[in-house]
Design a protein around this nucleic acid. Structure first.
Lengths: 350, 350
DNA sequence: ATGAAAGCGCTAACAT
DNA sequence: ATGTTAGCGCTTTCAT
């Protein structure tokens, strides 16, 4: 047990020398294959490691083993502001919860530009064993994924067409939006407005279609002016509601295609003295944490976003470790959360 | 220009052969040192790279160059739920905005346990060039940082004692809380309650002290029951307010030590029929995006969290690239944002 | 049970 | 201007 110079970080080689074993032996023992060696050797190596403060260099390990134990979460520029994106944040939480206990690490890949020339260098650069694509957009170069890389991948938050060859985990947007629309219809609403999301979001399209088809199924003609666009954010809800509140005769309900938008709609109502739900019902989608805190508390569809992130990471690790490629879509069901922002229309009440 | 087998990912060596140059030449050219070589060679190498779909293996590059171009953001377990932590989220946004344009990558290091034996393996494993410590807690093993690693580091969201040897970027909690308290006092409030943050948060302690000393400076005796604890979250604000609303004679104002807590306080008031700001003034701290959306909109202190994250990343990159070690604290000033949740006490009004 | 040796794919001297 | 070579720190056969 002689004194060790604490100059630079010790390497495996130094450790092995100090312990009087070969570098291969040290490697085995430190990566858990202890049953291959005699108890005394194991003990000696471990104790020298402790004493030296040895820490394996994960970069070297990754290079040699061709495994990084890291997964990348790829975020489109449009989503990259976490502060405004409770959805991405919740997915991230789920991913972390799944990765951490399994010893995997997390790299955030925020695409600065979508230049197809450099895009794949950022994603498939050898530093990750697989990636999670968060809500890729319609028309995104990311959809060309399989033409550019073999990296295991799972998509979250967008249900992509089968033909693209992805494995997607997402809310069942259509079923859930149908449920929500029919909830309102069942209450007696007929003149129901809709604030749609960005045209380049798959989920936005699916939610819109489901609304449209539910209305149609109930024989309700949807006027073009009942539909207003938004950016899926608070500001978009605010603006959209200004427009929808002008419609005459009045809409009795407004479906916002996500909660942030619904919060904007709510505030627009307050600003114009429109009472919710007395004058107009407002509902959201996702059930982000803020939804319950809204005034009034938002009736919405709860999507288990955290669990989706969790499951996505699990599916990815499975692909990585089993070397098996998943395909198709896993549609996760949500549930209607009835709070205070929706009520039967006044006419029906009276 | 013959056909290339698209079997496995091409390596530098293959590329070099294909282009008829040495591996060193190829390396130089692909890492931008093009002026060392003849234009024809450069062109040839680049074109072969394009044609082969060559992507450098960043792991190998990192090992050889001993630079990963990656920074780690270290998050304590207590903060690790992004969904509930607008502060961390905002810091992250700032960090990303600073890193991405500079070609650095981001690794999220969420500590699962704080076992001092394995802690440093997670942080200093060769995969990052430096780290940002997000709001390390009082008593955290992270504070032993410098005894365990030489990795460049900057601390964000905690102003640590100088003696610990860190470079910290943080809000000037004391000055800002003094400002806030004096704003209330200046309005005529005397009986001002305080919802403190967790005892293991530096910022919480600093904010509490500043409140105490501001009150003292104005000759106001603070009763122990005017102070309630919280977890810095909505739920904590809710609970704390229940308690503070019982104080007799009544408090005329409540300072929440951050915005999430203030939102809880606001809701507790609503639940008990206490009007804000008519019956009691409520103020927050941080100015997270939700603060403006609260009912009523929250009077608070704006902390430029995003900029703090941005600056932290910049300071870190500076240390990494210049090899220079920073120390001490950079205190960032905020500003009072007057909205609707605070007003003079009724007595003073009448 | 242990050691020796050949890489993993790249960078960076150094040589030419 | 280009090529050669010695690693970076580790994993993993393959011998012994």
């Amino acid at each position: 047990m002689k004194l060790t110079r604490r100059a630079a970080r010790p390497t495996l080689k130094q450790l092995a020398e100090e312990a009087g074993v070969s570098i291969g032996t040290a490697s085995n023992i430190l990566s858990g294959k202890t049953q291959l060696h005699s108890p005394e050797t194991v003990e000696r190596v471990l104790s020298v490691a402790r004493q030296l403060g040895y820490r394996p260099n994960r970069v070297a390990r990754s290079l040699a083993a061709r495994r990084t134990h890291t997964v990348g979460v790829v975020v489109e520029p449009q989503h990259a502001v976490f502060t405004r994106n409770p959805y991405v944040t919740a997915v991230l939480d789920g991913v972390v919860d799944s990765l951490t206990p399994r010893g995997y690490h997390l790299k955030i890949i925020t695409l600065s530009d979508l230049n197809p020339r450099t895009l794949w260098h950022q994603i498939d650069d050898g530093t990750v064993d697989g990636v999670i694509l968060v809500a890729p957009l319609i028309g995104s170069p990311l959809l060309d994924y399989h033409a550019h890389t073999q990296l295991p991948c799972v998509v979250v938050g967008s249900t992509l067409p089968e033909s693209l060859g992805f494995y997607c985990i997402d809310a069942d947007n259509e079923a859930m939006m149908r449920l929500l629309t029919e909830y309102l219809i069942g209450m007696g609403h007929r003149r129901i407005g809709f604030v749609k999301g960005p045209d380049n979001q798959w989920s936005a399209q699916q939610r819109l279609q489901a609304y449209l088809s539910a209305m149609d199924a109930h024989g309700i003609r949807v006027d073009a002016e009942w539909i207003a666009p938004s950016n899926y954010e608070y500001s978009g809800g605010l603006a959209a509601a200004q427009q929808l509140l002008e419609v005459r005769p009045r809409l009795t309900a407004i479906i916002a295609s996500n909660d942030m938008v619904a919060l904007g709609v709510l505030d627009a109502c307050v600003q114009r003295g429109v009472r919710v739900p007395t004058d107009v019902s407002v509902v959201g989608f996702d059930d982000v944490p803020l939804a319950a805190l809204a005034k009034p508390p938002l009736t919405t569809i709860r999507i288990p976003i955290h669990d989706i992130g969790l499951e996505a990471a699990q599916a990815l690790l499975h692909q990585i470790e089993a070397g098996e490629t998943l395909r198709g879509a896993r549609l996760v069901q949500g549930e209607l959360i009835v709070r205070k922002s929706a009520a039967p229309p006044r006419k029906a009440k009276a």
